[in-house]
Amino acid sequence: MIGKELIGLESESIQLQIEPELGRRFAEAIGIPFGDQLPPTLVCTLKHAGFPGIQLPLPGMIHGEQKITYHRQLRIGETLTYKRCIKDVYDRVGKLGNMTFIVLETTGYDKVGELVFSSSTTLIAPAKGEAE
């Protein structure tokens, strides 16, 4: 069950090396040529930082909004430390009936502890379509 008690929950920190191969495969999947720059939305893959005791997004959840703030450009080969936090949980009536909104914040820091990017993700769990 997803409720307000999850607000403030933090993920473990995960280190992810942005290997060229990761960038190349991501670029290929989204259908763009891979040159000397990493695709900007690569920072938002889910290959990092799970929450203890809860899988997010749960199967069936849909993605409502996404914001990414880049404090500097991502460099090929660098290692980022990812951390996620649940910032808000609220209910609202929408197109699919009663829905629960979950707002996650993800931050990525470089080796010297400088913030490289931060992002905010709004996930929507339709009351009916919630995971088995």
Partner: peptide
């Protein structure tokens, strides 16, 4: 949604070239 957002980002980076960078991108699906 992130696949659609990736297309938006690609449209922007194509246009920007090496003359600048995206510092913030916010979308609603």
């Amino acid at each position: 949604g992130m696949l659609t957002m990736a297309q938006v980002a690609a449209m922007l980076t194509d246009w920007i070239g090496h003359e600048g960078t995206i510092s913030e991108l916010a979308v609603r699906f």
